[in-house]
Computed example of a mutant assay.
Amino acid sequence: MSFLLGKDMTGGYGAADILHNCTIGVERGEIAVVVGPNGAGKSTAMKAVFGMLDLRAGKVTMEGEDITSLSPQARVQKGMGFVPQNNNVFRSMSVEENLEMGAFIRTDDARDTMAQVFDLFPILKEKRNQPAGELSGGQRQQVAVGRALMTQPKVLMLDEPTAGVSPIVMDELFDRIIEIARSGIAILMVEQNAKQALNIADKGYVLAQGANLYTNTGEALLNDPDVRKAFLGG
């Protein structure tokens, strides 16, 4: 039983199903990566796990508990953090204010967690009083991830965390994601840079047309000639 598991998920928007018997999941301290071509249903699968999409079939469990009927807000209370690809910061608020917004569900003192976020992303400490909208794309992604970490999640879900950033920034973000996983947090992410993402993944899922084509370790998928030819550029 995976720590977080969306199992045999079928559903979509309105009458049209986008997911077809799709399964993705992750264990504590692991990095699980969902890859596949555009339109494969990757982000839809993440939204289904987070409760933003009603399922016609299948279920979502966390720590063995069926959470299929819970709202996204209730899932955050359970320990899920979700960073969407777009519109993931409050652009007019400062970096520090964005991080404080992430602690809204907490009743304890969150200053230690903010210090940990600043240790993880030193540039955010340097720019803590700057509006998030004035930051570079990579820095805004760091704010978005940092805000999710302020909730003290058990699992962090990232939808295309390196979209639109330079290769250098991508490598830095992946290094930080590895650090987060080593702290014991489960990481489930959709990523367009499939080869680089599978290189750091404990587990990988290759989706096409809303269904699982391949499921294996990241290393095994990188070394699978069919996966390499079809999805990784040979």
Rank of each mutant, 00 (worst) to 15 (best):
E100L: 15
A40P: 09
E134P: 12
D202H: 05
G6H: 13
A163K: 09
L222C: 01
Q73C: 07
E27G: 07
V143D: 10
H20R: 10
Q192F: 05
V227R: 11
K7T: 13
Q141W: 11
C22L: 10
I67T: 13
G234C: 14
I187V: 08
L70K: 14
G12E: 06
T217N: 00
K78D: 07
K125G: 13
C22F: 12
I178E: 02
R56I: 14
T215M: 10
M170I: 15
G210T: 11
F82E: 05
N193Y: 06
N38P: 12
A57T: 11
E96G: 10
V76P: 03
G218H: 10
V145F: 02
K154Y: 04
V145S: 02
A181P: 01
V169T: 10
T61R: 05
D66T: 08
D224L: 07
N21C: 14
N21Y: 12
L55F: 08
D226G: 13
C22T: 13
K195H: 15
E96C: 12
F104V: 10
V227P: 09
N223W: 08
E96K: 15
G204H: 08
G234M: 14
M150V: 03
G234L: 15
N86A: 14
D226Q: 15
M170S: 15
A163V: 12
L158K: 06
K42M: 08
Y205L: 04
G146E: 01
E96Y: 14
I18T: 08
D159G: 08
V33W: 01
A197K: 02
N21F: 12
I24T: 04
T113V: 14
Q116L: 06
L188P: 04
L173R: 01
I31P: 05
L4H: 04
A148P: 04
Q192Y: 05
V143I: 13
D119S: 09
V49W: 00
A148K: 00
L173F: 00
N193V: 11
I177M: 02
G6Y: 11
Q209P: 08
T113R: 15
R75S: 03
P153K: 01
L232C: 11
M80A: 06
A194R: 09
V227K: 10
V35M: 13
F104I: 13
G14P: 04
I31D: 01
H20V: 09
G102S: 12
T162L: 05
Q130K: 15
R147P: 10
S2K: 13
E179W: 00
F90V: 12
L188Y: 03
D119C: 00
P167A: 05
G6A: 13
N129T: 15
A45Q: 06
G204I: 07
G81N: 00
V33R: 01
R147Y: 08
A45S: 07
L222H: 05
V165P: 03
P84L: 05
E126R: 11
M114P: 07
Q152M: 10
T215C: 13
L158W: 01
L19N: 03
V76C: 06
S136N: 12
E96I: 14
G133W: 11
M150H: 02
